Amino acid sequence: MTRHATWKSLIAGSQLVLGLVLLLTPWIFGFSAAATPAWSAWIAGLLIALIGAGALAGYAYPAAWANLVLGIWAIVAPWILGFAALAAAMWSHVVLGALVLLAAAVALWMEHEAPTQAHA
């Protein structure tokens, strides 16, 4: 496995893990009874994790774009959905969303820097 492929796998794996962590945050930080932030975390976390798994399966380029969008969504969801006053929910969405966004941006940058490799 080349160094580039190792980094791509690491980034895809991190997206999978970050999605699972976001999925679990309602229970970890105790906001599972608050329907809106809990469902936001469950749905966004599940989608991020599934897309991360897709990236590991060889669809890194489209997965990076999808998780870029989902990372942005997780960051802005507390204000759009109206749960910014619930600190645990807001910060878990913002921090994990930013990490997903960063991982997706790095994955896209790596794809751009390696134009000879197919966008799988």
Results as ranks from 00 to 15, higher is better:
Ala105His: 03
Phe83Ile: 04
Val106Ile: 13
Ala77Thr: 03
Trp91Asn: 05
Ala35Val: 10
Ala114His: 13
Leu46Ala: 15
Ala89Glu: 08
Phe31Trp: 05
Ala41Pro: 02
Val17Arg: 01
Ala33Asn: 14
Thr2Met: 13
Leu70Gly: 00
Tyr59Trp: 11
Met110Gln: 09
Val76Lys: 04
Val94His: 05
His112Ser: 15
Gly45His: 09
Met90Gly: 05
Ala118Ser: 12
Ala49Asp: 04
Gly30Leu: 11
Ile51Thr: 04
Pro26Leu: 09
Ser40Asp: 14
Ala89Val: 06
Ala38Met: 14
Ala89Asn: 07
Ala41His: 09
Ser32Asn: 13
Ala87Pro: 05
Ala55His: 00
Phe29Cys: 12
Ala88Glu: 07
Leu81Gln: 11
Ala55Asn: 00
Ile11Asn: 02
Leu47Phe: 07
Phe31Cys: 10
Trp73Met: 04
Leu22Cys: 03
Ala38Ile: 07
Ala104His: 00
Glu113Asn: 09
Leu23Pro: 02
Ala85Thr: 08
Ala57Leu: 13
Trp27Val: 08
Ala5Ile: 08
Trp7Ala: 15
Gly19Arg: 03
Gln117Ile: 12
Thr116Gln: 13
Ile11His: 03
Val100Phe: 00
Ala118Val: 12
Ile28Gln: 03
Gly71Ser: 02
Leu23Arg: 04
Leu86Lys: 11
Ala77Gly: 06
Ala88Thr: 11
Ala88Gly: 09
Ser14Leu: 14
Ala114Glu: 11
Leu108Lys: 05
Ala103Phe: 01
Ala114Val: 08
Ala5Leu: 09
Ala107Tyr: 05
Leu16Ala: 06
Leu86Trp: 07
Ala77Asn: 04
